[in-house]
Amino acid sequence: MTRQRMTWIVLTVVFVGLLVARGFVGQGLGRVYVERGEVSLAKDGRSDQGEPVWRTVPRDQAEHAWITWSRVTPKAFAEAQAKEPGQDRVVLSWPRTVGLWLAALLTLAIFSFLYADNPAYKLSESIFVGVSAAYWMVVGFWETLVPKLFGAILPGTVKAMVQPSLKVPAFSPWAPGTWDAADPAFWPWMQQWGSMAIALVFGVMMLWRLMPRGGWIAGWPLAFIVGMTAGRRMVTQVESDLMAQAEATMQSVLPVTPGLSAWDLFWGTLPGILVLVGVVCCLCYFLFSVQHRGAVGGAARVGVWYLMITFGAAFGFTVMGRIALLAERVEFLLDDWLWLIDPNHLRS
């Protein structure tokens, strides 16, 4: 048996032992409680737009009814039990409790990489890749494709199944007889429908890349994305970064409060002057078409100092962000899972 395997076994045994011991001490650990709620709705006429209006009614009169479960604190469960022993309004949620344990074990599996690469880490990594790919695909489908693409191409179906607030147009692309160019709603509809038809064609062309032959067809929608991004960025970057940043730099040196003493004026405008000097000097450093000699060289050297401070601050800020995330994960393990700390008084 290798030394590394021995270490893993010892760590796992100690950890499981501590976990079992923790289960028998105090309030126990790692449980999630939920409170039951009900939604019971019946139709209450129609709105001005002809959509049904729903109101809450007793369950026996409801046309649509379902139960909801919202998370509550362990303290709320203890209080509900003390008030009415054996009540079934606030109960232990098995799915969420299993989820909590799974989240904790996955967190530990990822942290185990700090010691060495191991099967638990690889397993978590594989789950992460699979779940995140599907997650973003599902989000893209329900939040972009359904309301925009299917909402334009199959408005009746989307309105009936997903989005009752969707307005179904009076025109149909498949029946030119319904088209009425004099109707003010016609051209916006035509624009929307045409855009989505082009998007659908481009989308299918893009998916052609997965076919064994003719993958070059995917180059057409890609060309659209490249061209559009270039055209949009060319103007927006110049406006929002170049011009806006230059304007902000200039304005920061202008005294805006009248009646200040010379001393206050100096201290008030000093930061703005330092920023202006810094921007000009850093830009001198970025200027590669002129040799860094004389005045330009001096300014470039000052620019390097500014950049060093900028990178140092950015580094410190990034590390702080990561440490905050780490603290949040540790708090999750100690508070939500192990119930060793209770900073938000969820249990006491």
Binding site: A133, A134, W136, M137, G140, F141, T144, L145, K148, L149, Q192, S195, M196, I198, A199, L200, F202, G203, M206, L207, R209, L210, A218, P221, F224, I225, M228, T229
Partner: peptide, 15 residues
Amino acid sequence: EIFNVVSAIAFVLGA
């Protein structure tokens, strides 16, 4: 609009 929809379809390509 076309860009947004094609980007969403690109997720299918990734999948």
